[in-house]
Amino acid sequence: MKHRFQSQGFNFGSAFFTGLTGLATALILVFLVIILGNIFLNGWEGLSWRFVSTIPKKDFFEPGSAAVLPMIVGTTIRVFVMTLFVIPVGVITAIYLTEYASTTSLYTRIIRAAVNNLAGVPSIVFGLFGLGFFINFIGKNLDQMMNASGPHFGQPAVLWASLTLAVMTLPVVIVATEESLKAIAPGLREASLALGATKLQTIWKIVLPNALPGIMTGAILAISRAAGEVAPIMFTGAAYYMADLPKSPTDQFMDLGYHIYVLSTQSPDIEKTRPILYATVLVLLLLTFALNAVAIVVRSRMRKAMRAGH
């Protein structure tokens, strides 16, 4: 009884578990460092101002003339156009689900199940869906309505690729927006209604402004997921080669992710192409970081503005 508080000796189980969780974390960090390190070290030398600012000739496997400007432009455009579509649709859906729909009705449960299942669909299936729905159905019908001589809408285009990505990332935006709407204190809605505001005024002036940072989180997640996707755009808009930058929403475009796929599968001499491949992967990584950084900066500005009370 004297040594009641004395340690019973080394607690093996606790130490083992601490070590195990630490090891798992370290393992992830190691992989991350290996991947990023490999890309930066090997991609750095291929990177040059000329590489990112010129439109390449058709033979983009030649280290001397390879360049990625059209791919940077194409990927950026498709991410922005996708955001333009996915944010309004996702936010409106989330508003319906949290503010209007009855939580118990069968209809609401079906919508929720659909959203959750949408998140689990493989991206290649979205690609095929985009080809079938946007290009062959909507596009072809638009062409027919306008009596176009050749296919104008009924062919792969940056618009259709962006829409396909928007459908794919819809669940991310819906879920993030729903979470931020639910996080708003119910007292704020009551306060607004008690002052004689309509439900619409309350949503528009009180609920949405407070949910904006959460909506931006949804946008950030959607951008991160979409920027590197290749499968959904393979059939819906990405081109193997274009001599010029896309000029209209119905033009095809070159894409960084798809270009990486082309470089690694179509090259006549993989050893000669490797530096270009590394440099292109590095550009894709940097572009994804940059797009995310823009969204994160916008979000922190919003948070600051909210805290300041304007």
Binding site: G187, L188, E190, S192, A194, L195, G309, H310
Partner: peptide
């Protein structure tokens, strides 16, 4: 609701300026 105002248990100012 314009004629019958309400003050709640938990103070609930909007996250806006005074």
């Amino acid at each position: 609701r314009k004629r019958v105002g309400m003050v709640f248990q938990k103070s609930n100012p909007f996250p806006k300026s005074i």
